[in-house]
Structures are given as structure tokens and as C-alpha cells.
């Protein structure tokens, strides 16, 4: 039983849940994702793993209410159980293969946008524990939508908060902050961007301009997550790759973001119809 051990709303529509999944918790690594199927009739929804605790046998997921399926996930309460949680899926972050010596010479900068801030956490925590220097730039539209600021503040060297409306921290987008930091003399050796596809596209363009290598984590469509369906196809370096088994992290310079964004919207029409006809099952089984 994939019981929800704890649940809290981080913002009015972003929810953090700790879910019991012992096998998954003991094998998860930074950079990987999982799939949740809330109930018998639900979709298989890929979510990045925001934390894992092998001792407790739990994984943490952060979900934003966007459509009917994410609303269903969020409707579950502490003590209830999801029908299915499976993973870890995808490859762990590449830095896990680096030696302590290599890591100590690195200065990472993470650019996190919106919901993408949550999966940045296990990566930054791991790097911090292994001696790398890490800066984190969190971007949100406004102050109330910022998440994981305390958690990230505790595990990184410098935390930079940016809001589009200037209600907190730097007034502007994350990429503008990155340019400002570099202009002020920071020498980042590696960037990692996790967030909406459009944000990762612009983070990549900025990094290209600044000459910083960048890794992006692609949140493509998928069904099984094991290489079976091919819904997650992305063009990377001119070749078709499956984000579920060959990703989700790729070299940002090589990713065809425009194609990836177009493919993300492939079921928009069907989802809109689903939303209109969706019978909310909140409160079912009680």
C-alpha cells in the first residue's frame, strides 16, 4: 500500500506528500523520477522525486494542480493510499559518477523555476554533502509562489531568490540573475536547470551566451516510463532519444526545445475535454 504518510500545502495549489514506497525509497537517486497512479481509473503521472528516505521507506513528491489528474493526486489525504507508485525511473544525475576531487573543483549553479524547485533539492543536498560548491537561483512569479526556500537555503552555499514582480529578492527572472552574478565575477563551472520547458530553453540560451555548460531535466509526456511507449521522444543532438530511459537529464545545448514544447501539448485537446467532463472524485471512499 502506497500510503500517504504526510501532506502539506506549500502554496494554495502546490502540495507536498511523503508516500510509503520502501523498495523505491531504497533505490532512488538524485535526478530520477517516479510514476503515480492515484486510483484505478487514474493516469500514470510522472513526477520528479523531491526527496527519499530509505530508513523510513518513504519518497517525497511535490505536485501542482494543473489538470484533472494532478487535482486527483492532491485530493488524497494523509492515511489514504495511492493505487500505484513505481520507480525510480530514468538515469541518476551524471554528477553521481564524479570523484570527490572532481566535485571539489566544481561550482554548480541551479536555476529552478516553479514546481521544478522541489527536485533541485535532492541534487543540491547530494552535491553539498559531497563537497561541491553550489549556488541556487529560485524563480517564481510572486513571493507567495516560492517553495523550498528554507530547505534549499540549508544545503547550498548561496541562495538567490527572484520574483517576476519584485515582491521578494531580485526583481526579474532567474536567467537575468544568473547574468548579473556572472557579471559580478562568479565563475560557475556547471549549470542545471529544472522547471517549465520554456524556462529551461531560456536558461540554456543564457548559459550558451555565458559559456557555461548546462544540464536540463525534461518533463515530457509518458505512459509507462520504461521505454515501451515512446511518447517521451525528444531530439537531442539531432537524434531521437527516449527521455524516460535515456534521460530525463540531457545536455541543454543539444535539446530541440521547440519540438519538445510542441510535443508536450499533444493531448491538450483531449485533456480539455476531459476537464470539462471530469467528475471530481474528491472524497471518494470516505
Amino acid at each position: 500500500m502506497y500510503t500517504i504518510l504526510s501532506k502539506e500545502m506549500l502554496t494554495p495549489n502546490i502540495c507536498r506528500m511523503k508516500v510509503r514506497a520502501p523498495r523505491l525509497a531504497s533505490s532512488a537517486k538524485p535526478g530520477q523520477f517516479l510514476i503515480v497512479r492515484a486510483d484505478e481509473k487514474g493516469e500514470r503521472i510522472p513526477l520528479t522525486i523531491s526527496d527519499y528516505d530509505a530508513a523510513q521507506g518513504s519518497v517525497t513528491i511535490v505536485t501542482q494542480q494543473i489538470g484533472a489528474s494532478s487535482a486527483d493526486i492532491i485530493s488524497f489525504e494523509e492515511g489514504e493510499a495511492f493505487a500505484d507508485v513505481v520507480g525510480p525511473l530514468g538515469l541518476p544525475s551524471e554528477f553521481l559518477t564524479k570523484s570527490a576531487e572532481e566535485l571539489s573543483a566544481q561550482h554548480y549553479v541551479f536555476i529552478a523555476g516553479g514546481l521544478g524547485t522541489a527536485p533541485v533539492y535532492p541534487q543540491v543536498k547530494w552535491l553539498h554533502e559531497h563537497g561541491a560548491k553550489v549556488d541556487v537561483i529560485i524563480g517564481a512569479r510572486t513571493k507567495d509562489l516560492l517553495i523550498y526556500t528554507e530547505e534549499l537555503g540549508a544545503v547550498c552555499d548561496n541562495l538567490h531568490i527572484c520574483t517576476d514582480d519584485g515582491s521578494c529578492g531580485f526583481h526579474g527572472v532567474g536567467t537575468a540573475k544568473l547574468e548579473a552574478l556572472v557579471a559580478a565575477g562568479e565563475k560557475f563551472t556547471q549549470a542545471v536547470a529544472i522547471g517549465p520547458m520554456i524556462m529551461m530553453k531560456f536558461a540554456t540560451l543564457t548559459c550558451k551566451k555565458l559559456g557555461i555548460p548546462i544540464v536540463v531535466s525534461l518533463n515530457t509526456l509518458m505512459v509507462d516510463g520504461t521505454g515501451m511507449c515512446g511518447a517521451c521522444r525528444v531530439t537531442v543532438g539531432g537524434k531521437t532519444r527516449f527521455a524516460c530511459v535515456e534521460g530525463p537529464e540531457f545536455d541543454g545545448y543539444e535539446v530541440d526545445f521547440d519540438e519538445a514544447m510542441r510535443r508536450q501539448g499533444q493531448y491538450k485537446a483531449e485533456e480539455l475535454e476531459e476537464k470539462e467532463h471530469h467528475v471530481c472524485r474528491i472524497g471518494r471512499g470516505k
Binding site: 505512459v223 509507462d224 515501451m228 511507449c229 515512446g230 511518447a231 521522444r233 531530439t235 531521437t240 519540438e259 510542441r262 510535443r263 501539448g265 499533444q266
Partner: peptide, 15 residues
């Protein structure tokens, strides 16, 4: 082959 509307039979049938 990566235009929208091109699917593997696996994806179509699994859905």
C-alpha cells in the same frame, strides 16, 4: 517522425 500525431503502436495500444 517526431511531429505531433505520430505514435508507436505500443503507445496507442497501451493507452
Amino acid at each position: 517522425e517526431n511531429y505531433n500525431g505520430v505514435f508507436s503502436a505500443n503507445e496507442f495500444l497501451t493507452r
